[in-house]
Design a binder for these strands. Structure first.
Lengths: 213, 213
DNA sequence: CGTTGTCGGTGACTAAGGTCACATGGTTCA
DNA sequence: TGAACCATGTGACCTTAGTCACCGACAACG
């Protein structure tokens, strides 16, 4: 039965929610899955519910007028999409894109529930604020990086981050992909990676990068 | 009497708050003023209250490791500092700097009140979310600009913004100041401004810039 | 096996923006 | 009036990163 599955998810990834809150959520939520590569969110979209991630990995990014994309942050199980929370409550448009990097599972919390949850469960309200705060910080970090750092620093940092995300020193990706994430071009990234390899910081193979150090 | 003054401020700048909410705020708030140039917020600071602006203008900016600063957004009367809201509730450190551009007046809402306000007044909770959402959007806009736009576009945009902020086509500032805001250097800004002047978009004088068009 | 597509490597060039050095011309104030 | 200071203008130069053109290597697949 679905409700039991939802309870399970909540216990695994949102264990700090009190039992009553979990029950309330289990009652109102539905489960939705997205295969890897699928868009969860487009610019200009309206939301009817907020999402709690319970499996997979989601990439959130911004699109420029010219079509270039720019990586902003990842969402992992146990986190919520701050934008969907607020856009849902306020019925505002979304301003970013999100796609599933891996097969992803999310709990959909209908906006109709939000007001009640907010009023009745301090844990929920703290959770929402905390979600916002941490995304906000990530944005500030992104700004710091593009404002103050050079490409090579940003590249190292990005690789580190990907590595932590997947819990592995072996990254399966292409130079082109990294270039889009950082808003740069393939050649530049290839060159910088080469330099890093010469310094012994990485080992390059086709379709994969191994981090040393 | 102070309570009446606070009520007055609330009526002027937060007129959409319902009377009960205004009363609750008036009971718990204190007024604080900051002379132009004073820091309202440093990195690493903890908050004991959240701020509602009721007069003046505040500049929020980020500081790089090297000491360079980078303008993020302005706060005007009628808005609240999203960061102080959340940092206050969560007792987390602040990550940005804020200084008063003009003499500034703010209402301080003690964090002890936040939980109750949040629970009892839907208007307040919507206000908090909306504050967050709009700051979030501004951050995304900043990211767009540094990621996708060239310096001359960013400069024009920044001047426009300053002009709207002060409600005047005459900006009293220095090239150096603009350069810091945009994370660039004085010479570059001077050159670009010169070019804009040649195109008839601005008129330059010592310590001031007049926008045309 | 050859064809085709994707990925990565590389040199040459360009453009944007940052840096340096120094000039100019107001402003202030003794 | 002249010294000190500040905001600005400007040429020369350098670095970073983006672009173009093209190549080789590998994989997939008929």
């Amino acid at each position: 039965m679905q409700k039991a599955i939802i309870q399970d998810y909540l216990n695994n990834y949102f264990s700090h929610f009190e039992p009553k809150l979990k029950n309330a959520l289990a009652k109102g939520c539905t489960i939705k899955t997205f295969p890897a590569g699928e868009q969860l969110m487009q610019t200009g979209q309206y939301f009817k519910s907020t999402m709690l991630l319970v499996g997979g990995l989601v990439k959130v990014y911004r699109q420029g007028d010219d079509g270039g994309e720019f990586f902003v942050y990842h969402l992992e199980p146990g986190s919520a999409c701050a934008l969907s929370m607020i856009c849902a409550t306020k019925q505002e448009k979304s301003e970013v894109l999100a796609t599933a990097v891996e097969d992803t599972t999310a709990l959909l919390v209908p906006i109709a529930m939000m007001d009640d949850l907010m009023r009745d469960y301090k844990t929920w309200y703290y959770f929402v604020l905390e979600t916002y705060r941490s995304r906000f910080e990530e944005l500030l970090e992104v700004i710091d990086h593009i404002a103050f750092k050079s490409m090579d620093e940003r590249l190292s940092y990005h690789l580190e981050k990907l590595s932590k995300q997947h819990g592995s020193k072996e990254l399966y990706t292409t130079h082109q992909q990294i270039a889009s994430d950082l808003g740069s071009s393939r050649e530049v990234i290839s060159r910088l990676l080469k330099k890093m390899e010469q310094h012994g910081n990485v080992v390059l193979q086709r379709n994969s990068i191994q981090l040393r150090n």
